[in-house]
């Protein structure tokens, strides 16, 4: 695990990944334990529809059909809680990758050990991406196990598509946090600013449909490309996934260019 920067960065994340994985499995199994109660009581849909639209939109988007497996999972997990956890994980990892090591001072030795700067950034990004995908695997396994346990009629492929879409969203924000770290060298700033943008993007996607004027702006939010095409029901939308990948590539490009140019702090 110490053969190169990529593996070393993954090694650094192994404990954090384990705890996030445990938390995620706990969350999904607890949520799915409530599914039989929901599906046996169609009244839930009515109650949900009577709630203020802004409130339901804020935390469930268009997913107001609570009693179907897809509607339940989308509204209770995939719209809000799961992407929130993934984005936090990836933002923390992305901001730690360069700016964290810079703050700790260890980057001075790493950058004088014959690995070019661009490669350090790319390998560290690779580790963040792989760790996030591993988290998505935990999520998928947790959901699949849960679906079997509560006898939920849901496609395992759909679950995989939604889990992957979540990972793509999170990696994009992780790359954004990495880029901020590469530009500023400040870990806290990068994590904070990336989180703030993620929160704004979330609400833009969730609430823009409430206003005709704002509706077109929804497509500016990365969250739209994560959940807008409902990957749980329809499978991964290639175009939407492509947008998330393009955002990630752009952020990584900025990260490399910025880091190649600037003075190391400390």
């Amino acid at each position: 695990m110490l053969a190169n920067v990529f593996l070393k960065t993954l090694r650094d994340q192994r404990r954090s990944l384990m705890w996030w994985g445990i938390g995620l499995v706990a969350l999904t199994s607890l949520t799915m334990a409530f599914y039989p109660a929901f599906s046996d009581a169609p009244d839930f849909d009515e109650i949900f529809e009577q709630m203020p639209e802004a409130l339901t939109k804020m935390f469930a988007g268009e997913f107001t059909d609570l009693t179907s497996p897809e509607g339940f999972l989308n509204s209770q997990l995939f719209f809000f809680v799961v992407p929130l956890m993934f984005v936090i994980f990836a933002v923390l990892a992305g901001s730690a990758a360069i700016a964290g090591e810079e703050g700790a001072g260890t980057l001075s030795l790493l950058l004088t050990s014959t690995t070019p700067r661009w490669r350090v950034v790319v390998e560290k990004f690779g580790a963040v991406a792989v760790a996030t995908l591993a988290l998505a695997l935990f999520l998928w396994l947790g959901l699949a196990a849960g679906a079997v346990a509560v006898d939920m009629d849901i496609s395992l492929l759909g679950l995989a598509a939604a889990s992957l879409s979540t990972a793509l969203l999170a990696v994009a924000f992780g790359a954004f946090a990495l880029a901020l770290g590469c530009i500023t060298g400040a870990r806290g700033l990068s994590a904070g600013a990336a989180s703030a943008v993620a929160i704004a993007a979330y609400f833009l996607n969730a609430l823009a449909p409430l206003s005709d004027a704002l509706t077109p702006l929804q497509k500016l939010s990365p969250f739209y490309y994560f959940i807008g095409a409902d990957p749980l029901t329809n499978g991964l939308n290639a175009l939407h996934a492509g947008v998330l990948l393009a955002l990630t590539a752009a952020a990584l490009g900025v990260a490399v260019l910025a880091f190649e140019r600037r003075d190391l702090h400390g």
Binding site: A104, G105, T106, S108, L109, T112, G266
Partner: peptide, 11 residues
């Protein structure tokens, strides 16, 4: 080149 920084930080 072998380098030892003044403010040495190791893992």
């Amino acid at each position: 080149t072998g380098y030892m920084p003044g403010e040495l930080a190791l893992y």
